[in-house]
């Protein structure tokens, strides 16, 4: 069995082909990051326009790299949500139309479930259901208990900004580049004082929810108060990153205690942050799994992999309608 996966929910166009054993046969990824960098964030209409230019060449390249033709595919999976509506429509329309005209099943995939399941592709990780997952990206911040295919419980999520969003906004105000995560991480490293006096939002709150909007504002106020010398800027970046890391860490500890689970997957673009990785490796008696970096950010592999799981479980949606779900909840 061979499944082709298409991702186009935000600013990456990803295509991948996987076989029934979960072996990756080929993948291609195009990032629009430079396109949006000049605006300090993703511009939805420009994202849609770029997806439609790139998607067919990427599918062709992926097929060629896998030495396959479309007639050899058994199913086509695509991201149906959540995400930017116009961007989702490109991948969904191409994917659904290909499947329809080839007469093979289409599998609409939940983008966040794909992030949850992609660590399984590395069979050496020994990952098994159930496990805890912290999903941290530019669009999402959530703690999830993954019980099985299509069976996930959202334990907590951000009540306002996603972590990655907070990084981007703070970086923008500090005059750093986009995306903000790597820029802040780099600057924080230069902090000599290792300043660490920013508040940890909702850390004593009994729920597992997050809030980063207040911390973002606090950071900006501190920046305005300071003389904005480069040392101070580095100190502020350091203090902000520490506060974010500590907050995420504390909430994960809380979730581990509440659920009794001993495996934690940390996924999403923000999990690339080294400070975060070091901190989480301090968790005692917990198996912390960081998916390989290329699977942490959006990609077609996770969509193909998740599609494959649904295909193997014979959970198909028999439809010719092209549908996207920009605000699709992970808990159906």
């Amino acid at each position: 069995m061979k499944v082709l996966g298409i991702e186009s929910s935000c600013d990456e166009t990803g295509v991948a082909i996987i076989d029934e054993k979960g072996k990756l046969l080929a993948e291609r990824l195009y990032s629009q990051i430079e396109l949006h960098a000049q605006y300090g964030g993703v511009v939805p209409e420009l994202a849609s326009r770029d997806h439609i230019r790139k998607i067919t060449p990427l599918i062709k390249e992926t097929l060629k790299a896998a030495d396959l033709t479309l007639n050899q595919l058994d199913a086509i999976a695509y991201t149906a949500g959540p995400g930017l509506v116009g961007a989702l429509f490109v991948g969904a329309s191409v994917g659904q139309s290909m499947a329809w005209s080839l007469g093979i099943p289409s599998i609409p995939v939940h983008h966040m479930e794909a992030h949850l399941l992609v660590p399984f592709i590395d069979q050496a990780s020994g990952l098994q259901f159930p496990f805890l997952c912290l999903l941290v990206s530019g669009g999402h911040t959530m703690l999830v208990q993954a019980n099985g295919l299509g069976d996930h419980q959202v334990l907590g999520q951000s009540r306002d900004d996603a972590v990655g969003e907070a990084f981007d906004k703070v970086a923008k105000q500090l005059g750093l580049g986009y995306p903000g995560g790597p820029a802040i991480e780099k600057l924080a490293k230069q902090s000599i004082s290792k300043r660490d006096d920013f508040p940890r939002p909702m850390i004593d709150h009994p729920s597992l929810d997050f809030s980063f909007s207040g911390l973002k504002t606090h950071t900006l106020l501190e920046y305005k108060k300071a003389k904005q010398l480069s040392e101070e800027k580095a100190d502020i970046a350091h203090a902000f990153q520490q506060a974010v890391t500590d907050t995420l860490y504390a909430k994960c500890q809380q979730a581990i205690e509440q659920t009794g689970l001993d495996t934690l997957v940390v996924a999403g673009g923000v999990s690339a942050n080294r400070g975060l990785r070091e901190k989480f490796n301090q968790l005692d008696d917990v198996n912390v799994i960081f998916p390989s970096m290329k699977f942490c950010t959006d990609n077609g592999v996770m969509i193909a992999y998740t599609g494959l799981q649904y295909a193997l479980a014979e959970k198909f949606v028999g439809t010719n309608e092209i549908k996207v779900y920009p605000r699709w909840s992970l808990q159906q």
Binding site: S48, I52, G95, M98, W100
Partner: peptide, 19 residues
Amino acid sequence: AFTGIRIAASVTQGIALAH
């Protein structure tokens, strides 16, 4: 409409690619 013409273009790409 932007979304409308992108749906037409995407569906066309999908079918044209497949066949």
